[in-house]
Design a binder for these strands. Structure first.
Length: 488
RNA sequence: GGCCCCGUCGUCUAGUGGCCUAGGACUCUGGCUUCUCAAGCCAGCUACGAGGGUUCGAAUCCCUUCGGGGCUGCCA
């Protein structure tokens, strides 16, 4: 490396508060985080709330909560501070204003008095004439006389950036060299008449001032890059100090549309409520647009940090696949220690009111977890899986209810009851022995037909955790009483 | 319309001129195991969008074409 005194790598995650953090946002945040951690750099968390219309306090609190839950920490930003703050754009308005005025003074920008209606009319005309719609430069060089006239009319100007002739050329770390001819990049607005900044101004100013070295963001921002670079120029930043850009491919829904609220579940909060593990979400999302390069797919956050490089990021969009997320989530659940599993599962049981959380219940849950661990793919499933242990009486689903009423089933349940009553050592091995003796040997049934009715009587469903273990957990008295009440 | 980006199994991907009769994972199908459901194991289906080049040789390089997406705002 020629440049040994390479500046510290600084990435930033800069969402705008338009709703809960979603899958696409988080994938970007994850890559920003992983890259910063991989390089020993810093991650800046910044809120792009230039649009004051939007309420942001609650949004920010939720975003912070989500990021923390996922295990994505930041070095500068809300809660932690930093030397380049504030990190809320709504608190940096004077900074943008000063820069816009500097641009004005230097002739890089100019006041534009065109009204929205006028602009729209002219754009329409351009479209009619089959020209590329965009600002036509009408106010680029207004005379003093024209300016006075506009002001007399009461017009308030916006500040518009002057795009010089030529082209912008930059190397995207994911896509390679990209060129935009300026004739396709019209003069753009930096600041509204009321003095509020636009994204293009704020994002560029902040990235420079916060010394961001690598901008990793969605590819929808690719074509706005020349405008940002134009702002860097106007700020007097040397080209060698421009941030590097890496435009990440989209995360799309199962159809070919961009993943959105209308198209699959996007809110990370939803995944959390369903019982997806944060490390599973991160693991899966990391695989959307990136791969470790070998056949590994189940990776830890540590491995992600160790292996993540921008060179290995793909340039083509990826479709979000719930099935694969579930597969990874299932793997991660199975790998949990019982203590960890318990800690994560308990909130689901309690908020659903399946249990109140008493010591007795918690210890029963803990004993039951090993037999359901490999049977669930989302933590939320512990609720239906274990609820038979905590209800006074099982409710049969339609199918199972009918089945247990059949004559054959009734015979089985009766025989099971009879063979179980003498069993005092209520361990699953003794239960199994008694049932095999009476049903398999005694009645000559196939295991499947023998244990089915018992399973229904005990758990309420023909699908359940392993029967004998379930019975041991339920306890002798409750098992016998359930068998009795299943007999009609 | 213009500009820009993208194009390997259904999906996520490996692949950077020969190791590719294209590998892995998820899904799906069949089987084994089995007290149900899972888990596990085994097997199988299925892909380089198309057409031209370059080369002894192309998924990999070039061109064209088709398809998808983004942008084209006083949204971000």
């Amino acid at each position: 490396m020629a440049d040994l005194a390479k500046r510290e790598i600084r990435t930033r995650f800069a969402p705008s508060p338009t709703g809960d953090l979603h899958v696409g946002n988080i994938r970007t945040a994850l890559f920003d985080w992983a890259y910063a951690r991989h390089t020993g750099g810093k991650l800046i968390f910044r809120i792009e709330d230039t649009d004051r219309e939007r309420v942001t306090d609650e949004y920010i609190a939720r975003a912070i909560d989500t990021l923390k839950w996922l295990g994505l920490n930041w070095d500068e930003g809300p809660e932690v501070g930093g030397s380049y703050g504030p990190y809320l754009q709504s608190q940096r308005l004077e900074i943008y204003s000063e820069w816009a005025n500097t641009f004005l003074k230097n002739g890089d920008a100019y006041n534009c008095y065109c009204s929205t209606e006028e602009l729209e009319a002219r754009r329409e005309a351009q479209r009619q004439a089959n020209q590329a719609p965009g600002y036509d430069g009408k106010c680029r060089s207004l005379t003093g006389e024209e300016i006075s006239r506009y002001q007399a009319e009461g017009r308030k100007p916006v500040i518009r950036m002057r795009m010089p002739d030529g082209e912008t050329r930059f190397t995207d770390l994911i896509r390679g060299e990209v060129v935009f001819e300026h004739k396709y990049v019209p003069d753009f607005v930096l600041m509204r008449a009321d003095g509020s900044p636009l994204y293009t101004l704020a994002v560029a100013v902040d990235d420079v001032l916060m010394k961001v070295t690598h901008v990793l963001r969605g590819e929808d921002l690719l074509s706005s890059t020349p405008r940002q670079i134009r702002v860097y120029q106007a700020m007097g930043v040397a080209p060698s100090d421009y941030p590097e850009f890496a435009h990440l491919p989209f995360v799309m829904g199962t159809d070919n549309a961009k993943l959105s609220k209308r198209n699959g579940e996007v809110s990370i909060a939803w995944y959390r409520e369903e019982g997806f593990l944060p490390e599973a979400i991160c693991n899966y999302l990391a695989l959307l647009g990136w791969s470790p390069g070998d056949d590994r797919e189940n990776i830890t956050m540590e491995e992600l940090v160790q292996l993540f490089t921008i060179e290995r990021v793909n340039s083509s969009p990826a479709r979000f696949d719930m099935k694969k997320l579930e597969a990874i989530n299932g793997d991660k659940i199975r790998a949990l220690s019982i203590e960890d599993f318990l800690e994560r599962a308990l909130p689901f049981l309690i908020t659903s009111k399946a249990i109140t959380g008493s010591d007795a219940q918690v210890s029963l849950v803990k004993k039951a977890l090993p037999i359901i661990q490999e049977r669930i793919v989302r933590l939320k499933e512990v609720i239906p899986m274990l609820s038979f242990l905590f209800v006074d009486q099982v409710e049969f689903d339609a199918n199972s209810g009918a089945k247990i009423g059949e004559a054959d089933a009734q015979k089985v349940v009766a025989a099971a009851l009879e063979s179980l009553e003498p069993v005092s050592d209520w361990s699953h091995t003794h239960i199994e022995t008694a049932l095999r003796n009476s049903l398999i040997d005694g009645l000559g049934l196939k295991p499947r037909n023998a244990f089915g009715p018992v399973r229904i009587a005990i758990t309420g469903s023909h699908i359940s955790p392993p029967l004998f273990e379930s019975m041991e957990l339920l306890g002798r008295e409750r098992c016998l009483s359930r068998l009795k009440s299943a007999i009609r």
